[in-house]
């Protein structure tokens, strides 16, 4: 009797454990190929498209080398590297997080800026609220979504707003620029602030509106090799690829500006 009484309780507790552990699991992959050399690149999430393309080019130029990526928020990546994750190259979406790596004395060479990105207004297709200027974002009745000030895109939004003298009243402050984009593309929000490159990558699912005030917050993207990398030469070669004409071509095609 006791056991049959406890069984549902135990089942529920077990299920509770299963359900709660599936919180945001951050993917950091560890490649264990034996013959090939593997270059591990930690890069900001906004570089997913461009760096994947550059990785393929790098593999073509260096037979026997496999490039694996860990794309995530820059601050997540820095804390993973300082906690001992095996990275050869680190590309950040802002200088603040690169400075954290340098402060931990883990940068293998002087970090160099390779791209820059600015904010752009994003709306659902057709721009239902007829947003035309930055000031329109503060209009009553416009459901605006931006990034939280704690993350780079949010601090950029805050800088732009204060230099433009506009008080933004967002209905939500999201965790990442991708979350902002998703809520606008789904039509839940009528406007959002994301990076120029995000608008370009989103294609037809959203409309983008460039605004002059965005120049007051330019995000610089620095790159460096990681100290104690087992593939220091390959890491340096990858950094050169990004800084060189091939890398710059891929980046500018995706909407990145020169630093």
């Amino acid at each position: 009797m006791t056991t049959s009484r406890r069984a549902p309780f135990l089942a529920a507790v077990l299920a509770a454990l299963v359900a709660t552990t599936s919180l945001a699991a951050c993917g950091s992959d560890d490649s264990g190929s034996t013959k090939e050399k593997t270059l591990t690149v930690f890069a900001a999430a906004s570089l997913t498209g461009t760096f994947t393309e550059l990785g393929k080019k790098f593999e073509a130029d260096h037979p026997g080398v496999k490039v694996t990526f860990n794309f995530a928020g820059s601050s997540d990546l820095v804390s993973q590297i300082t906690e001992g994750a095996p990275a050869d190259v680190f590309a950040s979406a802002d200088t603040k997080n690169m400075d954290k790596l340098a402060a931990a004395d883990l940068d293998g060479q002087e970090p160099e800026n390779f791209a820059s990105n600015t904010l752009e207004i994003v709306t659902p297709p057709g721009n239902p609220e007829k947003i035309a200027t930055f000031a329109d974002l503060a209009r009553k009745g416009v459901d605006l979504v931006i990034c939280a000030p704690e993350v780079p895109c949010g601090s950029a939004a805050r800088t732009v707003a204060s230099s433009a003298g506009v008080t933004l009243k967002p209905v939500s402050e999201e965790q990442s620029v991708k979350d902002v984009l998703a809520k606008v593309a789904a039509g839940e929000a009528e406007a959002g602030l994301v990076y120029v490159t995000d608008v370009k990558a989103a294609g037809d699912t959203v409309d983008g509106i460039v605004f002059p005030e965005s120049s007051s917050a330019v995000n610089l993207y620095p790159i460096t090799t990681v100290k104690d990398s087992k593939n220091a030469d390959l890491a340096a070669a990858f950094v050169q690829l990004v800084l060189g004409s091939v890398g710059q071509g891929v980046l500018s095609a995706a909407g990145f500006a020169r630093p």
Binding site: L23, A24, P170, S172, E173, E174
Partner: peptide, 18 residues
């Protein structure tokens, strides 16, 4: 307890504002 710990559905559906 499950409601207190809810994360995924909230961030996807409800957004995030203090």
């Amino acid at each position: 307890a499950r409601a207190m710990g809810e994360f995924g559905a909230t961030i996807t559906f409800a957004g995030s504002l203090q």
